[in-house]
């Protein structure tokens, strides 16, 4: 499967495969480990898992998810200005994967290139840990609620589409009923108006077909403007959750490990001095300790830079929150339009 990726900003279309997205995601994560890099959708359908999703639906879902991924990246205040993103969106040569890897190798990770990377500590508020912990809880609750909103919106969009099918089938059955030209038995034709009524049923299927179209349009609107937008924001919230985990398991963990290693070395050094070992081995140990001290210092700087980025990414989530009103607006508009249009057809049917 190949995708045509068109950027409005660069006014260019490029062709990309899933594996190109995969490499792009990998290098983006290497370069911006301290930021909200959204996840990619799975490459394949999980085999052996009971699922009601067909192959076609899976491919369409994956296309939508790749679209959300690249749009979140292209709208991010820091990713969007990076060479990697520009390369992915504009490079027209034969091997975009090598080009991406080379670009990443050449620039290094964000800590190496950010102008204030080593002074991040000076910019952090004193209560950064408390602020982070509060924001993280708030965002977690928002994430949980948005997942429920998405599930409900998805069901409503599905029901609109099912409504479309039912209305169409209802109209078709009326038409079948009306098209029955078999003569009525005399006991029926003398007492009822069934003959005339039957005639008029045939034409009703047209109105039901219009109703069905309106319901299908409503379903599509809800899927594109409501469910898809909710998924977009959910992808961002998930990437924030992943970032928090990376921050704790990554930088903090590495820092702890380095400190532990340092204390072991110090102990070794002390016992070596006490036991007055060979000067060469003591010297070697000393130089390793100096190296380790410098590694710890870098890690401390990285830790502050990671917190600095985390603080910015938290602000980014809060900046995105007003998207809620965009989504609700789209939902209300879709409902108003759907009910109005369908109301008009039902009114025509009433006589």
């Amino acid at each position: 499967v190949e995708y045509q990726v068109t950027s409005q900003r660069y006014k260019i279309s490029v062709y990309r495969r899933y594996s190109d997205f995969d490499v792009f995601h990998e290098v983006l994560l290497q370069r911006f480990a301290y930021r909200v890099v959204p996840a990619l959708p799975p490459k394949r359908m999980l085999k052996g898992v009971l699922t009601s999703v067909s192959e076609r639906e899976f491919i369409e879902g994956r296309r939508r998810a790749l679209g959300r991924f690249i749009n979140l990246v292209a709208c991010h205040p820091f990713f969007s200005e990076d060479e990697l993103v520009k390369t992915f969106l504009t490079f027209n040569g034969s091997d975009v994967q090598t080009k991406l890897r080379d670009t990443c190798k050449k620039t290094g990770d964000e800590f190496m290139t950010h102008r204030i990377a080593t002074q991040a500590k000076e910019y952090l508020p004193a209560d950064i840990q408390a602020q982070f912990s509060t924001s993280r809880d708030v965002i977690r609750n928002i994430h949980n609620s948005f997942q429920k909103l998405r599930d409900r919106a998805e069901k409503m969009a599905d029901r609109s589409k099912e409504n479309a099918t039912d209305l169409l089938m209802f109209g078709r059955e009326l038409s079948t009923l009306g098209s029955d030209a078999s003569p009525l038995p005399s006991l029926a034709s003398s007492q009822s108006t069934w003959g005339t009524l039957r005639q008029s049923l045939k034409s009703l299927s047209v109105e039901f077909s219009v109703l069905s179209d309106k319901a299908a349009q409503q379903g599509r609107r809800e899927e594109d403007d409501v469910v898809e937008k909710l998924n977009f924001f959910l992808d961002l919230l998930q990437s924030y959750r992943d970032l928090c985990e990376r921050h704790e398991k990554g930088v903090l963990h590495e820092h702890q490990k380095a400190l532990h290693k340092y204390s072991v070395m110090k102990r070794q050094m002390m016992s070596a001095t006490v036991q007055s070992k060979e000067p060469a081995s003591v010297e070697q140990l000393e130089s390793r300790i100096v190296q380790q001290e410098s590694a710890i210092q870098t890690m401390e700087l990285r830790n502050y830079f990671s917190l600095f980025c985390l603080h910015q990414e938290t602000q980014l989530i809060f900046t995105y929150l007003p998207i809620t009103s965009h989504i609700l607006g789209a939902f209300v508009n879709s409902q108003v339009q759907g009910h109005r249009e369908m109301g008009e057809v039902w009114n025509e049917l009433q006589p």
Binding site: V1, E2, Y3, Q4, V5, T6, S7, Q8, R9, Y10, Y15, I59, E60, R63, L66, G67, I70, N71, A74, C75, H76, P77, S80, L89, I116, Y123, L124, F308, H311, Q312, Q315, L316, T319, Y320, P322, I323, H326
Partner: peptide, 23 residues
């Protein structure tokens, strides 16, 4: 340097990328 002073509309208007399947 720490503050992101951008609105949602400014973020969303940075770019719009279409991803279409090639049949």
């Amino acid at each position: 340097a720490l503050t992101i002073s951008q609105t949602l509309d400014q973020l969303l208007s940075r770019d719009t990328v279409q991803v279409e399947l090639i049949p």
